[in-house]
Design a protein around this nucleic acid. Structure first.
Lengths: 110, 110
DNA sequence: TTCTTATTTGGCCATATAGCCAAATAGCCA
DNA sequence: TGGCTATTTGGCTATATGGCCAAATAAGAA
């Protein structure tokens, strides 16, 4: 691999990796609608608070969310709305894939 | 988490996870330009053939690439071009992040 | 058939991840 | 201050991942 490009691919991979978890995807989608504190997200996800907290720190570490302490809660919010474009892209891939499947299924029936 | 949505988030996560590796991102980008056999990709990546083969099977498993045996080589190609939209999205995030950084740097100088 | 090249698979090891529980920390409020 | 709530951190275990080497497989070429 061209070594000059390596850091760039690593940076991209880091972002993708941070998103590559069902719970984190769910949180991202929720945070796109509105900011939320750890507690609220924990209820939503249905896992241990510490687990959710760690997921959030993964997202924060990747620069996808920011946090702000207010009152006695820590509110997380999406750092840039463009993250949501991903979801659309993923859905396109899923749609393309299932279209392929259907094509295959149809050709089997013949 | 709403249990009806869980499979959907899992499907999305699977796609993202498959892409979340520097070598695999590089291969995707290359395959978008043209199909390539394992050998060619191996040279490009600079890892063991078996490693590259396993990366390819990850991508195949996620439905991102297809393979076709011709002559004595296995040619891989991108299954749907929309995968490349991702890269654009990731770059947007990276750009937004670095814009934030610069803002912070500027505000520090004042 | 035997050699050769291309690819995949299995084995092994080191490292990373996800999850839970328990403990530490931070800040509000009485 | 002391108690309460929210959150993070540390410790632990189970599992997954990435990498290499070596061996198995597949298919063309001699």
């Amino acid at each position: 691999m061209k070594e000059t490009m390596r850091p760039r691919y690593e940076a991209r991979a880091k972002i993708l990796k941070a998103m590559a978890h069902p719970s984190r995807l769910m949180m991202i989608e929720e945070l796109q609608k509105q900011e939320r504190c750890v507690n609220e997200l924990t209820e939503m996800i249905g896992a241990d608070t510490s687990t959710v907290s760690k997921h959030l720190s993964v997202l924060k570490n990747a620069g996808l969310v920011t946090d702000e302490k207010r009152a006695n809660c820590v509110y997380y919010s999406l750092r840039c709305a463009c993250v949501m474009d991903f979801i659309g892209c993923v859905e396109d891939v899923l749609a393309a894939r299932s279209a392929d499947h259907q094509k295959i299924m149809k050709s089997c029936k013949k």
